[in-house]
Amino acid sequence: MSNVDLHRGIALHRINAMILRYWYLLMSSWPRLLELVYWPALQIITWGFLQKYISSNAGFFAQAGGTLIGAVILWDILFRGQLGFSISFLEEMWARNLGNLMMSPLKPIEFLISLMIMSLIRLAIGVIPMMLLAMLLFDFNLLGFGLPLIAFFCNLIFTSWSLGIFVSGLVLRNGLGAESIVWTLMFGVMPLACVYYPVSVLPGWLQYVAWALPPTYVFEGMRALLIQQIFRADLMIEALAINIGLFAASFASFLLLLTSARQHGSLIQSGE
């Protein structure tokens, strides 16, 4: 992969080739497909029943119906978006195929675009059944959010891609020894993004950290929508602004890590 001519010659056929490669892989492996659906389904069932129990016993939650289920689904969009991106990248490391790709005309930007598209495909396979389950079992319709859902989704997916790009760069540079970061990074974001509770619960100094993360705005926005029935466009715009900076920083760090990998010979090593 050329790392010098980033913006020129983006070719659809190369992006298509990479998507085809991941599609073949998904279709050849039923455990991979099952994994995409299994965990989100388990999540929604567990949290859905919890929400049902709490709302029948607490007045506030009875009024704020759906906050837990909504948070679970939106969290899964964030988490699965990053995982879908990173796992497709890791498949190349596990297959020792990265050298073949790096030596091909595929460009880093094309590689990353194909990983983003695959994260959307993997997300759809996992989240659509999750949404249907929520609708059938708990009478919760995520699409009922209406247009705000688009703002929530876009902000969450941009964050997930940014983190996915960054950790992929780390793995590229440091080898599979850095793989665990792929699986755990997002869990570090979870308490600070205030998925299940409002930012006001956090100590004052930690609130500054929380507001530096775009997902915090989304989860606050979701609670405002469900509890107060208002759409906080201001929160979404602020989240988008942070996301743009985050995405640019992640992309730049990926390129730096790629250059560093070339300098250190990491691309011709395939282990830890």
């Binding site: 056929h13 190369r14 990479m18 085809l20 050849s28 297959a95 050298g99 091909s104 005309p105 595929l106």
Partner: peptide, 28 residues
């Protein structure tokens, strides 16, 4: 240009035809 080396592999789960199709498309 192209290369063959023992320090890289072709994806194992893909068939030979699928692998060649993917790389053929990458190289247009």
């Amino acid at each position: 240009m192209n290369f063959e080396s023992p320090y890289v592999d072709m994806p194992m789960r893909l068939t030979v035809r699928q692998n060649l199709t993917v790389f053929g498309k990458l190289y247009a």
